[in-house]
Simulated assay, not measured.
Amino acid sequence: MMIDLTTTITKEFLEWMENSPNNKHVNTGHVGTHLDTYKKSSIPLEYFKTKGVVIDVEKIANLREITVKDVIEVEIPPNGFVLFYTGRINEFEYGSEQYFANHPQLSHELLDYLLKKKICFIGIDCAGVRRGEEHQAADELCELNGCYVIENLCNLQKLIDKKFEIYTMWLDNPRATGLPCKVLAEII
């Protein structure tokens, strides 16, 4: 069974973004489900298909940072895709002020832990793995370690306690630092 993890963007939302003061997000690719690549590194084609694991942090994501202790017992697949289900995209509509405000985030120690595992992707169902000025720095740290952050995913709750593979497709763009993605999970 295939599950689409890509957040749908309406034409109206895209038009609103293009006409807002924040339209730089549209021009640089940071709308909807996208992969952050601030350093413009070359993403290996082997990343197209990875084994995935969902970590359910919905009960704690709005209370505190997600830490290593929340994932220490999870088997992280080598060269895998680690997805964090925070429930944010189910709680607030994508694009709403509430969706972006004070969204869940991963601790710095957790990011270091995951990068040592040599994974391909970190995915999350909110606006990023860190907030504010730390957002881009966290994405760059991941990218410099061969791992890419994919934001604004949906339907992650459908993968909890399941075995699955992820198919990630991105569109290269020499100028954009956010590459639109189509992300699909196949339950095996």
Score class of each variant (00 low, 15 high):
Met1Arg: 08
Met1Ser: 12
Met2Tyr: 12
Met2Thr: 14
Thr7Trp: 11
Thr7Glu: 07
Thr7Gly: 09
Thr8Met: 05
Thr8Lys: 14
Thr10His: 14
Lys11Ser: 10
Glu12Lys: 09
Glu15Thr: 12
Glu15Met: 13
Trp16Ser: 09
Glu18Gly: 13
Asn19Trp: 00
Asn19Val: 07
Ser20Gly: 06
Asn22Phe: 12
Asn23Pro: 06
His25Tyr: 15
Val26Gly: 10
Asn27Cys: 09
Asn27Val: 12
Thr28Met: 14
His30Cys: 14
Val31Leu: 08
Gly32Glu: 11
Gly32Ala: 01
His34Ser: 05
Asp36Ser: 14
Lys40Ile: 05
Ser41Lys: 14
Ser42Thr: 10
Ile43Ala: 02
Pro44Gln: 03
Glu46His: 06
Glu46Gln: 10
Lys49Asp: 05
Thr50Lys: 01
Ile55Gly: 05
Ile55Leu: 03
Asp56Gly: 00
Ile60Glu: 04
Ile60Met: 07
Leu63Phe: 11
Arg64His: 09
Glu65Gln: 07
Thr67Gly: 02
Thr67Leu: 09
Ile72Lys: 09
Ile76Val: 01
Ile76Leu: 01
Pro77Gly: 00
Pro78Thr: 00
Gly80Met: 04
Leu83Glu: 04
Tyr85Trp: 09
Thr86Gln: 02
Thr86Arg: 05
Gly87Ala: 02
Gly87Gln: 05
Glu91Lys: 13
Phe92Ser: 00
Ser96Trp: 00
Glu97Gly: 00
Glu97Met: 13
Phe100Ile: 09
His103Ser: 13
His108Ile: 06
His108Phe: 09
Glu109Gly: 06
Leu110Gln: 03
Leu110Asp: 04
Leu111Asn: 04
Leu111Thr: 13
Leu111Phe: 02
Leu114Trp: 07
Lys117Gln: 08
Ile119Asp: 07
Cys126Met: 02
Cys126Arg: 05
Ala127Val: 03
Ala127His: 11
Gly128Gln: 00
Val129Pro: 06
Arg130Gln: 13
Gly132Thr: 02
Glu134Leu: 15
Ala138Val: 04
Leu141Val: 14
Cys142Met: 11
Gly146Ala: 01
Gly146Gln: 09
Tyr148Gly: 07
Val149Thr: 10
Glu151His: 15
Asn152Leu: 06
Asn152Gln: 15
Asn152His: 15
Leu153His: 04
Cys154Ala: 13
Asn155Phe: 10
Leu156Lys: 02
Tyr167Thr: 15
Thr168Ser: 10
Trp170Ile: 01
Asp172Cys: 05
Asn173Val: 07
Asn173Arg: 09
Pro174Trp: 01
Arg175Glu: 12
Ala176Met: 11
Ala176Lys: 13
Leu179Ala: 03
Pro180Glu: 07
Pro180Arg: 11
Pro180Asp: 06
Cys181Ser: 11
Cys181Arg: 14
Lys182Ile: 10
Val183Lys: 04
Ala185Trp: 02
Ile187Thr: 02
Ile187Arg: 01
